[in-house]
Write a protein that binds this DNA or RNA. Structure first.
Lengths: 195, 195
DNA sequence: GTCTATATAAAGATAGAC
DNA sequence: GTCTATCTTTATATAGAC
């Protein structure tokens, strides 16, 4: 399987590694397997990423940055509708039987280095912060009842989405991330309606 | 590190392997590392589990059965309170920086064999079924509003708990599983109060 | 049931030619 | 920037002694 168009090989390495980590974990993927997929030799990868940990950290960073960009490009509607749209980012992942890269790395926590861990922590922190911001807006606009613990609610949504990808792949139910988010937003709206 | 008391070595192998899989994934743990931990030689393990896949499948099965037993032993109170107790099973896991074994294996889905996958699927199915039963009871007792999609709500809770373990370990926040479950049960109770 | 010795394959990584 | 060749370590697994 030769390498397609003229994309920078560094980017292709990261993309294919991302998929492989989602499939078999950070320990399960190898330079050899990655090289085969791309039709190059394994030592060539060392030229771009000196160690495997370098590559994994780069994968995590790119995922975090790309995801942030995807979130920025979500349609800006009502705050709770934005969270529904946000869930479709995870559903898109589920449709290819993939996990969130950061969830996948988190599952192999003791097998990765400090730089990678810092990226994963940053990813979860950024996503929680974004959700908190939407939830705060929802309180201000009256969509969401006052008095709810915004931070815990944000963690609930993120946990739910990360976990749903694990379960969706095992069950073959790619619609799970959207379904459960729809239910949760329904629940919080109901709470607001009766506040 | 020699092996403690007179417990069957087969059980000890499964227990230590369970912890290692939670730490570094199914590909990251090895017969060599497992042997070292227990103070035995690696080939000895082959005597008890002919292949690594045999061991992984046994680990998954024992986890599923032990978890079912833990669930059966939860105090039988109000249905929604039982779900709160249920969450403490996950919190206990988080306190040792561990994942649910089935969540950990699910993260390395393409790296395990059919028997193991069947165990994981069965675990998720059993847990979902248990949650559905409690939720149905909660509707009957008036704790929970009628009309909610019970199956989706059960999947929401399980997804939430599985995902919270991933995030709790990265964040060092072992209280997460309980906090988010408390919030969710609060949300559904609120819904019932206003139904 | 546990060990040593061994087979075979693959891993991560480096050196040096082109 | 990519390759072949190689190094070292580790992996899963088997054979056979005790």
């Amino acid at each position: 399987m030769a390498r397609p168009s003229g994309r920078p090989i560094r980017d292709e390495l990261i993309d294919v590694a991302t998929q492989m980590i989602s499939d078999v974990g950070v320990t399960g993927f190898s330079y050899g397997g990655l090289a085969k997929q791309l039709g190059i030799s394994a030592p060539t990868i060392h030229h771009h990423f000196k160690t495997k940990e370098d590559l994994i950290a780069a994968v995590a960073e790119k995922y975090r940055l790309d995801f942030a960009e995807s979130v920025r490009q979500l349609p800006t509607t009502d705050p709770l509708d934005q969270i529904t749209s946000y869930a479709t980012l995870f559903a898109r992942t589920a449709e290819t039987d993939s996990l969130c890269l950061c969830g996948a790395v988190s599952a192999d926590w003791l097998a990765v280095g400090e730089r990678t861990r810092a990226e994963i922590e940053a990813f979860f922190a950024e996503q929680t912060t974004w959700l908190e911001a939407r939830l705060t807006e929802a309180v201000e606009s009256g969509e969401l009842a006052e008095g709810l613990p915004i931070g815990t609610l944000a963690s609930t949504i993120l946990s739910m989405l990360e976990g749903s990808l694990l379960i969706a792949r095992a069950n073959g139910d790619a619609g799970l991330p959207v379904d459960i988010t729809a239910l949760l937003t329904h629940l919080v709206r109901t709470g607001a309606a009766n506040a």
